[in-house]
């Protein structure tokens, strides 16, 4: 598996899109730090970008990478190696290269700015952790969708739809439910519902860390009130890990029975 991972990673890190993705984050972070200078504020602004962009890019890369390497995957399948190792190798190579782009693009400017000595170093770390989690989750989801669909257009559409659902539609439905049933106690429902959306979870995690109650929204506030900051973060982290493992399990399950 490590062998496949190594070469997928090299292949992807050298692609034009990896450079563009890294450069975008570099530029954004540098300009935000330069304009604002308040690390906590920069982390909050970057959060909003990363929460939308990291899943979107991971989704698109995941689908594109799978379909583009379809023929090469066939060659790999003819080699003396387990199927599982091929697909996990490719998936991890993809997720790691996306994560590295994000870590470099966002991390470098902060380090140069001198984040290590400041009080907000853990806020910054949390931002990176969430970004990496989102890259892993959405590239696994899109890889899984691409594996399930031979038809490229359908696979691409479905993957984008999943991203759209978690990034936009879910929140809309959630708010709708909250306002419709506002006469009932909704705390448990709210906690439960946010566990089912990795993007919401990530937002809650960062806001808990930043401790900005004004931005926390309903779920953030509820989680802080009922679980406390520490337990709330632990639960959110655990849920995010499940979000990585579930599609990864799906990848290996589909790959096992698939005809190529």
């Amino acid at each position: 598996m490590l062998k496949i991972l190594k070469y997928s990673f090299f292949d992807l890190m050298r692609s034009r899109w990896a450079y563009i993705y890294t450069a975008f984050f570099l530029l954004l972070t540098v300009s935000l730090l330069w304009l604002s200078g308040d690390i906590a504020k920069v982390v909050a602004s970057l959060m909003n970008v990363i929460l939308v962009l990291a899943p979107l890019i991971a989704t698109m890369f995941g689908v594109m990478y799978y379909y583009n390497s379809r023929e090469f995957t066939e060659l790999l399948l003819s080699q003396p190696i387990r199927r599982r190792h091929i697909f996990f190798g490719q998936y991890l190579g993809l997720a790691l290269s996306l994560s590295l782009s994000l870590l470099l693009g966002v991390g470098l400017p902060f380090v140069v700015y001198g984040v290590w000595g400041s009080a907000e170093v853990w806020d910054f770390m949390m931002l990176l952790v969430v970004g990496v989690f989102l890259s892993f989750i959405f590239s696994a989801l899109s890889f899984f969708i691409a594996l399930r669909n031979e038809n490229r257009i359908k696979g691409f559409g479905l993957a984008i739809l999943v991203w759209l659902f978690f990034a936009v539609i879910y929140d809309g439905l959630f708010l709708l439910a909250l306002s419709l049933f506002s006469d009932y106690p909704l705390e448990n429902f709210a906690i439960g519902a946010s566990l089912f959306n990795p993007i919401d979870l990530s937002r809650v995690l960062i806001l808990l860390k930043l401790d900005i109650s004004a931005l926390m929204g309903y779920t953030g506030a509820v989680i802080q009130k009922f679980l406390g900051t520490a337990l709330g973060m632990a639960v959110s982290m655990a849920a995010l890990s499940v979000w990585v493992l579930l599609p990864a399990w799906g990848i290996q399950h589909v790959a096992k029975h698939k005809d190529f």
Binding site: K3, D11, R14, S15, F72, L75, Q79
Partner: peptide, 26 residues
């Protein structure tokens, strides 16, 4: 040994790296 019908390999790998990869796997 297998020769696939369509010769498409990872775009950003060099020829020597591709051959090394197969050697690595086997």
């Amino acid at each position: 040994d297998y020769l696939p019908q369509i010769a498409r390999f990872p775009d950003n790998l060099r020829v020597s790296e591709l051959l090394a990869m197969i050697e690595d796997i086997r």
